[in-house]
Measured scan of single mutants.
Amino acid sequence: LADDRTLLMAGVSHDLRTPLTRIRLATEMMSEQDGYLAESINKDIEECNAIIEQFIDYLR
């Protein structure tokens, strides 16, 4: 059971955070005209990261 939990934490961490990191990188490359959009996307990314952290904390 502990091994399954560790594997799940690693999978969640990698499989969800990697795309979020790519999205954040894309927002950094957006033009200044789209700053409001990038800010909104980054806020959503932070919310997703917080949910992931809560899930990982729960698994521990």
Rank of each mutant, 00 (worst) to 15 (best):
N49S: 09
D3T: 05
M9H: 04
L16F: 02
E32A: 06
I56K: 14
G11N: 05
D3G: 05
R22T: 03
G35Y: 10
I23G: 00
I41P: 03
T27C: 03
M30R: 06
L1I: 13
G11H: 09
G11Y: 02
L20W: 14
N49V: 15
N49L: 15
Q54K: 13
R22F: 13
Q33D: 05
D44M: 03
R17V: 03
D44W: 00
A38V: 00
E53R: 09
P19I: 07
M9G: 00
M30F: 14
A26E: 14
Q33F: 06
L25C: 03
L20Y: 01
T21R: 10
I41H: 01
K43A: 01
D15V: 00
R5Q: 08
L1H: 10
S31N: 06
L59I: 13
E53S: 14
D3L: 11
S13I: 11
T27Y: 10
L7C: 06
K43F: 15
L1S: 11
Y36K: 11
R5V: 11
G35E: 07
N42K: 00
D57H: 07
S13M: 08
Q33K: 06
D57S: 03
L1P: 13
R24C: 08
M30E: 11
L37G: 11
L25E: 15
A50C: 10
L16K: 14
H14R: 00
I56Q: 08
D15C: 01
S31Q: 06
A10T: 00
Q54A: 09
E32G: 07
A38T: 05
F55Q: 06
V12I: 00
Y36E: 09
D44A: 03
I56V: 04
D34E: 07
A2Q: 13
Y58P: 15
L37D: 09
Q33V: 04
L7F: 13
A38F: 03
I23P: 03
T6N: 03
L8E: 05
Q33N: 05
E28G: 12
I23E: 02
L59P: 10
T6V: 09
R17W: 08
M30T: 12
A26Y: 05
S13A: 11
S31Y: 07
F55L: 12
V12R: 03
S31V: 05
T6D: 04
V12F: 10
P19A: 15
E47K: 08
M30Y: 07
G11P: 12
N49M: 14
E39L: 14
H14G: 01
T6F: 12
D34R: 15
D34Y: 07
P19Y: 00
D57E: 07
L7H: 06
M29F: 09
T21C: 04
R17K: 00
L25V: 13
M30I: 00
S40N: 13
L25M: 12
A10Q: 02
E28K: 15
H14D: 02
A50S: 09
A38D: 13
E28I: 10
I23V: 02
T18P: 10
R24F: 10
S13T: 04
Y58E: 12
E46V: 08
A38L: 08
N49D: 14
E28F: 15
D4S: 10
Y36V: 12
P19L: 12
I56A: 12
L7T: 05
E46T: 12
A38H: 04
R24I: 12
L16D: 00
R24H: 01
E47Q: 04
D44S: 13
I51W: 14
E28L: 08
I51N: 03
I45G: 07
Y36L: 08
L20K: 08
V12M: 14
F55M: 03
L7A: 06
T27S: 13
T18Y: 02
D15L: 03
K43P: 12
I23M: 00
Q54Y: 08
I45V: 09
M29T: 10
L59M: 12
L1G: 13
I45E: 04
V12K: 11
I41L: 00
L20N: 02
R22I: 13
T21V: 10
E39K: 08
E32M: 08
C48Y: 01
T6A: 00
A2S: 09
V12P: 01
M29K: 04
S40L: 00
G35S: 06
V12C: 05
C48P: 14
E53P: 01
S40V: 02
T18K: 00
Y36G: 15
L37P: 14
S13L: 12
Q54P: 13
A38C: 13
I41T: 15
E39T: 10
H14F: 00
Y36T: 03
Y36F: 15
R17D: 11
D15M: 00
D4V: 12
C48Q: 05
I56M: 15
E47W: 03
E39Q: 06
N42Q: 04
S31W: 00
L37S: 04
G35F: 06
L20C: 03
E53Y: 14
D4R: 11
N49G: 08
T18R: 08
F55V: 05
I52T: 12
D3V: 06
E32W: 02
A38I: 05
S40Q: 03
R24G: 07
I23R: 00
C48L: 05
G35R: 06
L37W: 00
L25W: 03
L7S: 04
N42T: 03
L25H: 05
E46A: 14
T18M: 13
A50W: 08
D57Y: 13
I56Y: 04
L25R: 10
L8V: 12
E39M: 08
D57W: 02
Q33H: 05
R17S: 09
L1K: 00
H14W: 01
A2T: 14
I41K: 01
D4I: 12
R24L: 10
I51F: 04
R17A: 08
L37E: 15
C48F: 02
E39G: 13
D44P: 07
A38P: 08
I45Y: 08
A50F: 07
F55W: 13
E39A: 13
R22C: 00
A26V: 08
E47T: 02
A10R: 00
L59H: 10
E46Y: 12
R5F: 09
L25G: 11
I45M: 02
D3C: 07
I51R: 11
D34W: 02
T18I: 11
L25T: 10
L37Q: 15
T21M: 10
Q33I: 05
L8T: 05
L1Q: 11
G11T: 13
E53V: 04
V12W: 14
L8F: 08
